[in-house]
Amino acid sequence: MEVMFDMPDESNIKEVLKGVSRRKFIQGVIAGGAGVSAATYLFRASTATSAASAGERLITINVNGRDRRVDVMKQETLAMTLRYKLGLTGTKIGCDRAECGACTVLIDGVPRYSCSTLTHTVRNAKVLTIEGLAKEDGTLHPVQQGIIEEQGFQCAFCMSGFVMASVGFLQTNPNPTRAELAHGISGNLCRCQDYDKILTALLRGAEIMRGEATHA
């Protein structure tokens, strides 16, 4: 698929952001009718038990350019839908509580924590995950290419989140300083603490995006 580099629609961003306030999120969870509060973030198989299917419904979400029909519970988070219903395991869960950013995906071009986004709120949005970033012919996105060239990241469990956050940020600021990019991706945590090399690699990706860099 083609990767979109154009700016997301303003009204769409507002709509999306409006959808994710903590209050809304919790309301959504309560509305989902989960009986066990500690279990609201947990994975529920959609067909395994008959009792489980009450309150679930088939919805369509657009992920990586394709409409996907998926059976989700009202309290189901996008991270769980992506990972356990759609097989898109490149999106990682590092904390499940909006602390680490490993689950970051783009929703209508805006970086968002998929662990704290209810799947039913993205029905009218376009979701982009790490798997949808490269072109269909395998050409890597410039940010991915920058990481390969600079040997960015260590264990890389945080990598897809950082990459999606960067791709979103670079759409709003294609030519950031090192400090600006650091602020732009500060919602992501790397426990290998490889921050210096990460910034170098992502800035290299920004260079390639701007078409300034000659490949090493």
Binding site: R83, L88, T89, G90, T91, K92, I93, T129, I130, E131, L133, A134, L140, Q144, I147, I148, E149, Q151, F153, A156, F157, M159, S160, V163
Partner: peptide, 21 residues
């Protein structure tokens, strides 16, 4: 000498499988 390790491509494309994947 610097080079790019062969495990990186799977990591940047989300194909690298960790235990929960």
């Amino acid at each position: 000498k610097d080079y790019s390790t062969m495990d990186l491509h799977a990591k940047v494309t989300g194909q690298a499988k960790y235990a929960e994947d």
